[in-house]
Amino acid sequence: MKFRPNAMEAVGALMVLSLVLVAILAPWLAPYDPTRAVANTFGDPAAPSRMYPLGTDQLGRDVLSRIIFGARISLTVGVAAMAVTMTIGVTIGLTAGFFGGALDFALMRFTDVMLTLPALLLAMAFVAVLQPSILSILLVIGLVSWTQIARVVRAEALSMTQRDFVVAACALGAPSARLIVRHVMPNVMPIIVVMAVLGTSGTLLLDAGLSFLTLGVPPPTPSWGRMIEEATTYFRVAPWLAIFPGLAIFYAVLGFNLLGYGFLRRRARAASAL
């Protein structure tokens, strides 16, 4: 079967790809150093002009350059946090779904407990414990975001263990590790990929939210959420400071959402075609 992306997948993939390119090429794309004052506008942000297409901030730094470099931090944290999330979620989900019984019960009740704690509130408390840094933030986001993935993977793994080919492999004496890695895992993989793509929009938003609450990656590293937080002091005189970084977050989150829902739609169509 030839792979033909639907419109949502195509647009989403292009958006994500463009973002990755901007992040990689940031030093060549950004007109100025994002952490240096380039305009003599201390305490008095300048409106967009030909020199500074998106204006300058309260410290005279170029907003466009900061947004371009911000893509690096956002994508790094978003994707790495998703990797942590998936590692925890998939491990717990596969273990619970495959082994079942008391282990399943214990893991799923733990998941229920985590589900009742508002993710942002818990992340705030964790960051307070660990002190903000890139590493602590992506660990914290992973620690609070895995519940949904664990549930979905568990349900899929559970249905797989009852399928004939898994039962047959088990009857042939294959050890649990082999059953999981060779038989269950590959069949759960498609839903894991979809969840990872959709989940990245969640980790991006959580990272931006933490940054907005000044609990994100510490300055002077340019971060989109932090830029909006800094802009709130100046929103009467310089609303553009808040508008542009927000558009960047929106673009990134929407890209991953379109890509993920595009996959889901393909799956739904394939299922209803059967």
Binding site: S201, A208, F212, T232, G246, I249, F250, V253, N257
Partner: peptide, 14 residues
């Protein structure tokens, strides 16, 4: 999808 992608604190600020 657009609605779920808007950062809530940015929407509030706007």
């Amino acid at each position: 999808l657009g609605l779920v992608s808007i950062p809530v604190f940015w929407l509030g600020t706007i």
